[in-house]
Write a protein that binds this DNA or RNA. Structure first.
Length: 886
RNA sequence: GGGAUCUUAGCUCAGCUGGGAGAGCAUCUGCCUUACAAGCAGAGGGUCGGCGAUUCGAAUCCGUCAACGCCCACCA
């Protein structure tokens, strides 16, 4: 006896209750088990500052679908969860919060600040986890990790020391991107370029005359977008082949304001075609100029403080902000008659992706990872298919980065993060990189060391995530069993930041790829296609959607109608459609349970299956095969679309309707039991196929329907079975469906209300078709609004003016009691005649084409011949009807 | 400047390896048929961006042009 489902589908409350049960039963937990094959996913760790947004919802829905699918298939499925300390993002937030309290981070000092940061982590780190649970994520929460927990810290230190020893991590003065607001260096990947309206200041420097004085007659003109950097100019460059400037070779120009002579250098970096062919060189504040400076051994003058104000090298401009200084310098140049013109100019400005501040290139001592050797196995792996990217086109993006790789600046002038394990001898300044603070300086023997104040780029620890979470650097059983992981699910926007870095780290540290496949998804945009952002205020909160429509509806919305790697638009109508589907599933299940109420389905009920039963079982069998194949190929949206169509269109709209007469008033117990048996069988398998996508509703129904079962999520995935393939019945029922559709169509066209039943004659010369209708009479009558169904060989006893529907191998007649509009009926038949003529012409066209006949595959030709035959027969029938009526 | 993607019904998008154009929403017409009006039954609506090539056959493969947005690099 079954329990009952609530009258209306209401995800509210139900979802939390079910999730609670899953947690208590520990279904998400995975342990090493040599008897089972592992299937592993590591979560892209959300930031501890984060709140669940649509991107997370999509990302984690996809992972949960895969992990639930594999778990049901019998794999030992581990979804490894955790969170990311997100050094700069978090530090910025904490500073903001402190600011509200009127505290500067330096007031607290490093230790005080870190104390606050850990409090922050404690408070907000769990928030996002709770939100992931709302979504239904079946992560193994017992294994939750954090990028700054003890194990991850050890992994980071280990990697840093190993790589330093190998010479692949080094410290050096390079030009790096500096964020003057966050007060730290950032990597190239963290710089976002955006087009900004600006100006092109055309200015001129006097040449230096033979007396070493600025000439009053000779000038060199060029243009700049950042005039203030002239304070740091140490040369002017021209192309060596530029004949216009041959006379300048070996000469000097006078740097105004700073008032000193600087050389003219020749460098092929200069584009002769651009502007005047003259470039001012500021090695301290421009990456290209820095390279030029290295080649010509130019002095590097840093003119900026860390907060982007002018430093003491800027003379009278010291203390001014970079933009104030720009204005003042332009005014001064104009005063000196050195400003030629100001042009409006749009150019690309590098900004910090976190705070949008314009970054300043600066020369600073930083730690770098040497990339040239490290990247090689990562390139090879993708090139040779060792790691598969889905969709494949992402390879282009991937190689675009690996081919242009530059050394990775990993030190950050932040407090929140992994402290760099480098120690400086207080006496002799010797650098010691070690896991622990050294006791004695190897060089001078002194015992006092100061640790490097910097922390590491947050991606340094995320790069180790696939193995650090499994216990590395220890050789744990988990690591041996679960590594390499199977699939990584993430957005294409972090290929550079994360995916590539995990791959080269995996090969370098583990000598093995971190995952076999990377499944990319796109961005979730708003209904107008805009990026969801805080500043636009167009973000849609997944939690609100869950609250209103349920997590199942949200998940279904995010996964349908979208191909891997493509962006998608989110709008409420789609969530409603998904919720309506949930409601449909709910009600169909409720219907089935109501009919099972108080009945015991006999064990041998399957022996009495009728054609309709075999038809739906056969359809189900096909669905199982196809949906599983699609999922194996990561075509999640396609798979669930098929399940959706099956449940709604085939199962609910046809099968359940077909079966109703048998359930309601059948004296034939065997027939009724076969129907119940089939309903239950199909529903259960359909629920299983749906479970990875809509875990809550399927669990609720499954457990209500089968109180002896514990949970659908540990049930086994349906398998395609040849014993469930009934080709003959599939075809037969399609004939009945075609007849029903034809009759409904005709009735609607003539405005016959459904309440008005009519006699239906099925005329066919073929006994096998006749028996199909005979067998299906009971439900055919209901679906075709028939008061009576008469199957016969000829038209005996049928009124001439009956309405007719021509289908393959049969004609259906409906003699309505009162006159129907004969003219209208003739028109309809003529339309049908025309359609069939068109079909026949098309078929003939192909079959009369010699090339088609000789080159097309035989099966295709046969298929076309069959169609021609079918349409010809139908046309004959239609014409016969027309003759009768006219 | 380079690269990848995309252009399909009024809207948002599917369409896997070439063989008669699909879904959801919207629109129109009937239905309170005892699972579901968050529903049922029907209907209308597209020379699949343009041109060209390959093929018996192209929304699908190739080339080219155009448009939208995206990524990367760079413009001193």
């Amino acid at each position: 006896m079954s329990k009952e489902l609530e009258k209306t589908y209401d995800p509210h409350g139900m979802e939390d209750r079910i999730y609670q049960k899953w947690m208590e039963k520990k279904y998400f937990h995975a342990e090493v088990d040599p008897d089972k094959k592992p299937f592993t996913i590591v979560i892209p760790p959300p930031n501890i500052t984060g709140q669940l947004h649509m991107g997370h919802a999509l990302d984690n829905t996809m992972q949960d679908i895969l992990i639930r699918f594999k778990r049901m298939q019998g794999y030992n499925a581990l979804w490894q969860p955790g969170t990311d300390h997100a050094s700069i993002a978090t530090e910025v937030k904490i500073i903001e919060k402190l600011k509200e309290e009127g505290i500067d981070k330096h007031d607290l000092g490093r230790d005080g600040f870190l104390e606050r940061a850990w409090e922050w982590k404690k408070e907000y780190g769990g928030r996002i986890i709770g939100q992931l649970k709302k979504l239904g994520s079946s992560c193994d929460w017992d294994r939750e990790r954090f990028t700054m927990d003890e194990g991850c810290n050890r992994a980071v230190t280990e990697v840093f020391c190993k790589m330093h020893e190998k010479g692949w991590i080094y410290k050096g003065a390079r030009i790096i991107n500096w964020c003057p607001v966050c007060n730290t260096s950032i990597s190239d990947a963290e710089v976002e370029y955006e087009d900004q309206a600006g100006h092109f200041w055309h200015i001129k420097y006097p040449l230096v005359d033979e007396n070493g004085k600025p000439s009053t007659t000779e000038f060199l003109e060029f243009a700049t977008t950042r005039p203030e950097t002239m304070l740091g100019d140490t040369a002017v460059a021209v192309h060596p082949d530029d004949e216009r400037y041959t006379y300048l070779h070996g000469r000097q120009v006078w740097l105004p304001i700073v008032n000193k002579a600087i050389p003219v250098v020749e460098d092929t970096y200069v584009d002769m075609e651009f502007g005047t062919g003259v470039v001012k060189i500021t090695p301290g504040h421009d990456p290209n100029d820095f390279e030029v400076g290295k080649r010509h051994d130019l002095e590097i003058v840093n003119i900026l403080n860390d907060d982007a104000t002018i430093n003491k090298n800027g003379g009278v401009y010291e203390g001014m902000d970079r933009y104030e200084a720009r204005k003042a310098i332009v005014e001064e140049l104009e005063k000196q008659g050195l400003l030629v013109e100001i042009e409006d100019y749009s150019h690309n400005v590098g900004t910090h992706d976190r705070c949008k501040t314009t970054v300043e290139p600066m020369v600073k001592e930083q730690w770098f990872v040497k990339m040239d050797e490290l990247i090689k196995p990562a390139v090879k792996a993708v090139k040779e298919g060792e790691i598969r990217l889905v969709p494949e086109r992402m390879q282009k993006t991937y190689f675009n980065w690996t081919d242009n790789i530059r050394d990775w600046c990993i030190s950050r002038q932040l407090w929140w993060g992994h402290r760099i394990p480098a120690y400086y001898c207080d006496e002799c300044k010797e650098v010691v990189v070690a896991k622990e603070k050294p006791a004695v300086c190897p060089k001078c023997g002194c015992t006092h060391f100061t640790q490097d104040p910097d922390t590491l780029d947050t991606w340094f620890s995320s790069a180790l995530w696939p193995f650090s979470t499994l216990g590395w650097p220890d050789e744990t059983e988990d690591l041996k069993y679960f590594y390499p992981t199977d699939v990584l699910v993430t957005g294409y926007d972090i290929i550079f930041f994360w995916v590539i870095r995990m791959i080269f780290s995996g090969y370098e540290q583990m000598k093995e790829k971190p995952f076999k496949t990377v499944l990319f998804h796109g961005l979730v945009r708003d209904s107008q296609g805009r990026k969801m952002s805080k500043s636009l205020g167009n973000g849609i909160d997944p939690l609100e959607i869950i609250e209103k429509y349920g997590a199942d509806a949200l998940r279904l919305t995010l996964i349908t109608g979208n191909a891997p790697g493509n962006d998608m638009r989110f709008y409420y109508e789609r969530v409603e459609a998904a919720r309506n589907f949930a409601n449909k599933v709910w009600n169909a299940s409720r219907f089935i349970m109501m009919n099972m109420e108080g009945k015991e389905i006999p064990k041998d009920a399957g022996k009495y299956l009728e054609p309709a039963d075999k038809w739906i079982i056969s359809k189900l069998n096909r669905l199982v095969k196809e949906a599983t194949d699609n999922m194996e190929r990561y075509e999640l949206g396609i798979a669930v679309q098929k399940v959706y169509d099956f449940i709604w269109d085939e199962f609910c709209d046809w099968y359940i309707e077909m079966v109703k007469p048998r359930l309601y008033n059948s004296d034939d117990v065997n027939s009724q039991n076969a129907a119940l048996y089939t309903l239950k069988l199909v529903l259960i398998d359909a629920l299983k196929l749906l479970h990875p996508y809509m875990p809550f509703i399927t669990e609720e129904i499954f457990c209500t329907l089968q109180s002896e079962e514990e949970s659908i999520m540990i049930s086994s995935w349906p398998l395609a079975d040849d014993n469930r393939a009934f080709d003959k019945e599939e075809k037969e029922i399609e004939i009945l469906k075609e007849a029903v559709r034809g009759i409904r169509n005709v009735r609607t066209g003539m405005n016959v209300p459904p309440s008005r039943k009519a006699q239906v004659y099925v005329v066919t010369e073929k006994p096998e078709i006749a028996s199909v209708f005979e067998e299906g009479k009971l439900f055919f009558a209901t679906l075709a609004y028939a008061s009576e169904v008469l199957v016969q060989e000829d038209k005996a006893g049928i009124a001439d003016d009956a309405v007719s529907v021509v289908i393959e191998n049969a004609t259906v007649y409906i003699p309505f009691a009162e006159l129907v509009d004969i003219g209208q009926e003739i028109e309809r038949l003529k339309k049908e005649e025309k359609r069939l003529q068109g079909e026949i012409a098309r078929s003939n066209g192909m079959l009369n084409n010699e090339k088609f006949m000789s080159k097309a595959p035989a099966a295709k030709v046969e298929e076309e011949k069959g169609k021609l035959e079918k349409y010809t027969r139908m046309l004959e029938q239609v014409r016969a009807r027309l003759e009768t009526l006219q």
